[in-house]
């Protein structure tokens, strides 16, 4: 199931399926935010923004507006 990264729930794991390259800083790509890599939402800051992810083993926080530029596919749980 595809959804926007900003709609991920705390603790959910997914795979990145699509990113909007023009709106995403290169630094984030270099940290492993690339199609195919796994991503897990670890924590949402108390006021609903920013988001704290584990992307491809990098622990990174980004703002909601950046997260909106990333489409993910939920990991299928059996």
């Amino acid at each position: 199931m595809e959804k926007n990264l900003s709609d991920l729930k705390k603790g959910e794991r997914a795979y990145i399926s699509e990113i909007n390259v023009d709106e995403i800083p290169l630094k984030l790509l270099e940290m492993g935010c690339l199609p195919g890599n796994f991503i897990e939402l670890i924590q949402i800051a108390p006021l609903g923004d920013p988001f704290y992810f584990n992307i491809n083993d990098s622990h990174v926080a980004i703002r909601k507006e950046t997260a909106k530029q990333i489409i993910v596919t939920l990991e299928i749980t059996i």
Partner: peptide, 11 residues
């Protein structure tokens, strides 16, 4: 300005 914000959360 585009508002980018990326910060690493180190161990």
């Amino acid at each position: 300005c585009k508002s980018y914000f990326v910060i690493e959360m180190p161990s």
